[in-house]
Design a protein around this nucleic acid. Sequence first.
DNA 1: GCAATTTACGAAAAGGTTTTCGTAGTTTTT
DNA 2: AAAAACTACGAAAACCTTTTCGTAAATTGC
Lengths: 339, 339
Amino acid sequence: MTKTTLKEIADILDLSISTVSKALKGYPDVSQQTKKRVLELTESLSYTPNTFAQSLRSRTSKTIGVIIPAMVHYFFSNIIDAILREAESRDYMVILMQSNEDAQLEKKQVDLLLKKGVDGILMSLSNKTHNFEHLQKIIDYNIPLVLFDKIAKLVPCSKVTIDDIKASYDAVQFLINKGHQRIAYFRGDLNPQNSIDRFLGYKKALEDNDIAFDPSLVYLCPDADFKDGYTAAEKLINDHGTSIDAVHSITDLTAIGAINYFNKKNIRIPEDIAVLGFSNWFMSSIITPTLSSVEQNAGKMGEESIRILFDEMDSKQKGMTIKHQKIVIDTQLVLRNSC
Amino acid sequence: MTKTTLKEIADILDLSISTVSKALKGYPDVSQQTKKRVLELTESLSYTPNTFAQSLRSRTSKTIGVIIPAMVHYFFSNIIDAILREAESRDYMVILMQSNEDAQLEKKQVDLLLKKGVDGILMSLSNKTHNFEHLQKIIDYNIPLVLFDKIAKLVPCSKVTIDDIKASYDAVQFLINKGHQRIAYFRGDLNPQNSIDRFLGYKKALEDNDIAFDPSLVYLCPDADFKDGYTAAEKLINDHGTSIDAVHSITDLTAIGAINYFNKKNIRIPEDIAVLGFSNWFMSSIITPTLSSVEQNAGKMGEESIRILFDEMDSKQKGMTIKHQKIVIDTQLVLRNSC
DNA sequence: GCAATTTACGAAAAGGTTTTCGTAGTTTTT
DNA sequence: AAAAACTACGAAAACCTTTTCGTAAATTGC
């Protein structure tokens, strides 16, 4: 079963390849009758143009590339979900790659995508990406690039993020309004901007409420996973007993680790210690007690990212100058039983 | 910044395009000296061949297509994770599509992948796929196809699954060995083969142990989600009180819904009712009590699927006849505190 | 020193589509 | 009736790579 080509159609109808092509593309210099003949035959042979040839000629691929740190996170799979939907509706294909938090691999993947000739690239950077030459290369190749979530502030391209500082600030402010004063913070890895920003939000909220920042209340959770949360909670209780009012955590999974420890030690949530997470992971409404969190709107982030990418791709095709956009997705405090 | 082509290199070195191409491909009829000159220049200009032209000529794309029902399931994101890793290591790109459990969309996506000229296709079918013409089309086009997890038994292609009947059988047998006699089953949607098979495993285990099958102990959880599990548990208690020994569930999320209800009603797990899930979702080790489950080895399934696909692609390229493989991934009972 | 071989390269075609330009043949205008 | 305009099509180039085949020039063999 070999694919039909224009040449075959042309031979059958005793026309030239040009005329067949023009008939299919609706050019005006083809008679109605010829158009009809061509359309009928292509239909019955279920002709589809060879995309390699089309791409070679048009220098476009109807394909976009997406690089994320890891697939197996609820947040990212939600973003990918939104991206796939949107791309599909515009008949674009998505090439997906994951950097596994490896800067070297990320760089290699960018090269692959460029080589592959994608029309645009969406990226969320690995935590270990500190050199941005590969991003500059994308820009130099004049390929639209949109960074989301994990971005590089200084790279000149469009960006979609949440306001991590504000999100954590609001969360901590809420705890303070509830009367909490001794608020511990389970922070993420030291490098990523998100992690830094959320920590800054925590500090700023304390500051604005004249609560002295106490470094001994900050616990590092480098992997931001369940285990990190559990052991941080353990340390917290060992260090401070129950003199702590509340815990705010870099992410829900860590918070759930903490909740697990508190439950085990019969420390009541929220009576003894309130817990507030981040990300509004869907498990958070399922555990006991249900966990308050910050909704990041992953779907919206995915939608906005690809919308901007298509914007830029359209502009580029029309020869217009591309204006980079910076979108901040709003976040919401989702209140449940843990505080 | 426009991409370098063979012609440019040839012009600079005062060679023909053919010679440059052959130098790069290591043909023997190019002098060592010329090879060196070419290699040095291509290096310094960072030449990369145009993939569109390569694909057009070779009729291959170094790309595989993957269609899954939905991204946002731990099981599938784990499979995708494995597929991406493996594809990456072989310098293949992955085009990912999701059918959203829509048979019509799935069909359209197959057409897109065929049109796009992928070298192979990996698919897990939507629950609503009952017509397999689109799969036959892939086979007619002579594109290697591997079905995984949600397969169509009668389509002649390679398949990777688990033995759902055996997995559930073993799970129920374990419960029986523990002394449970009145074992309820929370079953999934009526159509998908997996759902049917797991149910059959449950029935067969009862039968083999001379326990009468009681239809009133089977509760339908069509969406197999938390809510379904919660309400099924509620119904179960309303119908039978605590005369039930144990519950086996189509999937962990449903089991967790049930656990949530039991916890709320102070029904002790496993003393009053034992609970056994399916899938070994990573949350299952985190909730209280930790949930026993059946490990499906998603990563292994992904690895095996793409390995077979590459096998078939290699065979095809070598002109060998393709022998379809049927792999059954082994499952394990993972015992925790819920039973 | 001539024939046979080897070396090193280039021309050209093929892969399929798209678009520009040229041109017969027809119709309209003056 | 000649000039202008229009209609409907085809030739050909371009996109870039790969590979087959042909052939000068250099080398080897006798």
